[in-house]
Design a protein around this nucleic acid. Structure first.
Length: 450
DNA sequence: ATCGGCTCGCGCAA
DNA sequence: TGCGCGAAGCCGAT
């Protein structure tokens, strides 16, 4: 057994036929270190069937712009090239994934389907649609979390402290080394007409995405991700705990865009970090506990992107303060243009607009101020999610929805001293930021276009 | 510079 | 049933 069966669950129970095994790549856009792809290969070899990979490009997805699609498409071209070297065909589809995947499966006479895992509702709807349409076995493999989301905990966790021991108990079992993906035999083609020609220009053309300034400072793709990991291990890991919360220092890993698109595996990062440093507790806390807790929240709480997901104490407290007078009220447009009275907030907004990646510490301050400056918590949450999904390279991710729910709604947090607007939700202040790092340097860095 | 109070409810020990 | 404790804090007192 190559892939730990605990990483796999059955979405549709049928018996596998002779046809090709298809890995429906979605959240985990990489060839290396991908448990879903490895499992699909395992099934193909067991039945002596061909193996193929398909990705369905959605022309309009949760406010993604050209900035994110460029990152995604360049990464996928690398996936195609790496799969070619292994004789594994890659199909680039476009349209509604539920419909297009079902069509491909029937065209190819597929014998089994394997997908990766995402807790987000769109992904779950697509899979449900495919499961209805098809009569072949359909498996889901959590290739994103180190500990499969449904296995780590059977319920929504209250906070990190309740989740952490569950993770720690299972971590050793699930930090096993990845077996190598095998090269497929030459005859491994699911289609009669030989090689597949994906039309990348047409894929680009089908997008209905708004434009946003390209994030030119970061190279997409698996190879670039591994390079960034090497750079982090060599230069930043040792000082991570000290530097990570100073937005003026480049102390964070810089891996979150790659993690979001699955261009690198969190488990690969963990394996390499553990090899290079014994006590990497604070980094592994971020990489594993916090990130997998975000998946836990979105998976078990269907209200992960609205206020109903907040804990009862926060909902009550926020509603008691909904009528509090707001000293500043901004429209979404004023926020988007970084036109507020707060130069620190504007700087964070500019960092996000210009680069597609706001520093982690500032993300909390940024979201909390939106709560302070909009007419209601619901409007604040909508505005924060809209911008996060639109501008951040790692937007549209469980970590984003959960981070915003933490900032605005006390999710995974505790109650604090009651105050206007926020009620008992933790407040953050300009003065607090000043006491932690040199805000002037950060402001001047981002107050002019880079 | 440092400290305590603020405040909720889970998870576990008993 | 009681108790300890928690992602990043704030604020006023000392």
């Amino acid at each position: 057994m190559l892939v730990n069966p605990q990483r796999v669950r059955t979405l549709k129970k049928e018996s596998q036929t002779k046809g090709p095994v298809i890995y429906w790549m979605s959240r985990d856009q990489r060839v290396s270190d991908n448990w879903a792809l490895l499992y699909a290969q395992e099934l193909a070899q067991k039945h002596d069937s061909p193996l193929a990979v398909a990705f369905c490009l959605v022309p309009q997805f949760l406010g993604a712009t050209g900035r994110q699609y460029r990152f995604l498409l360049q990464g996928l071209k690398e996936v195609e090239k790496n799969l070619q070297a292994l004789n594994i065909p890659f199909f680039l589809l476009q349209g509604d994934p539920g419909k297009e995947m079902a069509r491909l499966l029937s065209e190819l006479g597929a014998g089994a389907l394997v997908s990766d895992f995402s807790p987000l509702r769109q992904s779950r709807e697509w899979k449900a649609a495919v499961a209805v349409e098809t009569e072949i076995p359909f498996y889901e493999v959590d290739a994103h979390n180190i500990i499969p989301c449904w296995f780590a905990s059977p319920k929504q966790e209250w906070a990190a402290y309740s989740f952490r021991p569950k993770v720690n108990r299972l971590l050793f079992e699930f930090t096993d080394e990845f077996p190598a993906l095998q090269k497929s035999p030459e005859r491994n083609s699911p289609s009669e007409n030989g090689a597949i020609e994906n039309d990348w220009a047409a894929a680009q053309g089908c997008l209905k995405a708004d434009t946003a300034p390209e994030a030119k400072w970061i190279m997409p793709g698996e190879a670039a991700a591994m390079k960034q990991l090497g750079n982090f291990l060599e230069h930043k890991l040792a000082g991570y705990e000290r530097d990570r919360n100073d937005p003026n220092k480049d102390g964070q890993s810089g891996l979150s865009p790659y993690l979001h698109f699955g261009q690198i595996s969190a488990q690969r990062i963990a394996l390499e970090v553990l090899k290079s440093m014994k006590d990497a507790g604070s980094f592994l806390e971020e990489l594993i506990v916090r990130k997998e807790l975000s998946d836990n929240y979105c998976y078990y709480n269907q209200h992960y992107d609205d206020m109903q997901g907040f804990p009862a104490w926060a909902k009550t407290s926020l509603s008691e303060h909904e009528k509090d007078r707001r000293e500043y009220l901004y429209t979404l447009q004023e926020l988007e243009r970084a036109h507020t009275h707060d130069d620190l907030w504007n700087a964070a907004q500019q960092e996000m607009l210009q680069t597609g990646k706001m520093h982690g510490y500032m993300r909390m301050y940024w979201a909390k101020k939106i709560l302070e400056w909009t007419e209601s918590p619901a409007a604040a949450q909508a505005a924060a999610i809209h911008q996060n999904d639109r501008y951040e390279l790692d937007g549209r991710d469980p970590s984003g929805y959960t981070g915003i729910a933490w900032s605005l709604g006390g999710v995974h947090d505790r109650a604090w001293k009651e105050r206007a607007i926020f009620g008992k939700v933790r407040y953050m202040s300009y003065n607090g930021a000043k006491s932690k790092f040199d805000v002037k340097t950060y402001i001047s860095k981002w107050s002019h276009p880079q």
